[in-house]
Design a protein around this nucleic acid. Sequence first.
DNA 1: CGGGGACTTGATACTGTTCAATTTCCGTGG
DNA 2: CCACGGAAATTGAACAGTATCAAGTCCCCG
Lengths: 244, 244
Amino acid sequence: MQKSVSLTPLRVACSGCYLRELCLPRKLTDSDMAQLDNLISLKHAYQRGDFLYRSGTRFQSLYAIRTGFFKTQVLHVDGREQVTGFQMAGEIIGMDAISSDTHTCDAIALEDSEVCEIPFNQLEELSRKLPSLQRHLHRILSREIVRDQGIMLLLGSMRAEERLAAFLLNMSLRFAKRGYSPTSFHLRMTRQEIGSYLGMKLETVSRTLSLLQGMGLINIRNKSVELHNMPRLQALVGPPPQLL
Amino acid sequence: MQKSVSLTPLRVACSGCYLRELCLPRKLTDSDMAQLDNLISLKHAYQRGDFLYRSGTRFQSLYAIRTGFFKTQVLHVDGREQVTGFQMAGEIIGMDAISSDTHTCDAIALEDSEVCEIPFNQLEELSRKLPSLQRHLHRILSREIVRDQGIMLLLGSMRAEERLAAFLLNMSLRFAKRGYSPTSFHLRMTRQEIGSYLGMKLETVSRTLSLLQGMGLINIRNKSVELHNMPRLQALVGPPPQLL
DNA sequence: CGGGGACTTGATACTGTTCAATTTCCGTGG
DNA sequence: CCACGGAAATTGAACAGTATCAAGTCCCCG
């Protein structure tokens, strides 16, 4: 949030959180912001384990995560489940449901969380009036596509160590963006959830983390991680592109 | 295309092709269609092997495939490549680039093809005026997200036979939608490209296809496939959800 | 302090990869 | 039209990586 702008209700309610995601501060006037305020309802609280939405239910709103941590997963008929993503404060969730007006995955809180609801019809209406908001919405949708492609690359062509290195670096990056340490953080999800996300079994996750620790790249104790050698983790993944 | 509507230039130029994707015939008036016409430029022809666009180049337009067949792939620095999708007539391509104004993958023609260019700025402008077009654009973007999640499920939790069964059924479905046989079609891509898409090596693709043939589910000779037992292929993937 | 879930670690089995040899297909030029 | 050559595809055998099964430990919550 920029210092100079006035504190509209939205800015206050969600200060420093999903403004990053949803708004283009440079292009939206205070009056525009006020309009955004109006369509974003009060925030809701969820406890660890609560469903934000379920696959198959009707779509009405996107959700901006104000605080907390979620996972999204698709359930395969035979019981197999695939975690499709982990979402943290400042991120928008629910975009998969636009195509069919029905949620195609479950969203579950991994810790106590607060979200703001954004009725999609109203968001569309407002974005017809505000080109910069429209553009930003398109960017957010497209970013999700790019993110998914990164995961496809990971799942399709990386080995266990590479996948975990990519995963840890991605978490690091996202924590850093939110002002937390990029080298020391707390994983909210279980080994099984990590494994589901990365396409491997929980035992392999555990083994591989121990391996990375043995190589001196990380230190992991339970859900607390410390990254000791980011460059070598990067090298494991394959240098530049910050995919995933 | 519906019989009753008049033949605007767009409808003629792209008859029966990407109207399915880009337009909502029921809600767009002829006058609306005329406006769409104006922003869609002449179609371009590409030969097998040509790039429609390259990763890293500037984004300006989406492309509607009128005829032909494309693949999209992301290149990993170390040379690894991952095919992220195969696109055929009637599908929209290039949506990954919206987020950063830069293409994030290569799009390459797998056979001689024609595409219509859709300047994205103009599409955004028009969709501000036509809510049904706006909604449809959002659906298309979201559908891409859902598609990617299906592939994540495939890559993350299926075995070779299941992946190939899912792949073949998906192709079948898409050919059928375009009026071709759902049980007998021609694959445009190589075993290596299939493998890259499905996260396996070309030898494994070949072996697994031979296996499915041995089980009497398909008949494959080179790039010509016949599906002999769709129900059992479905059962392999896991019953209902037509993912991928 | 007890209990159950999460996690770690080991031994073994299996799926898919790698390397290699051959065959088939297809476009090109004679 | 046929012959040639290179790419694509098939198949086999050995190997590597991950899954599976199992045992035991750790941690957190009540």
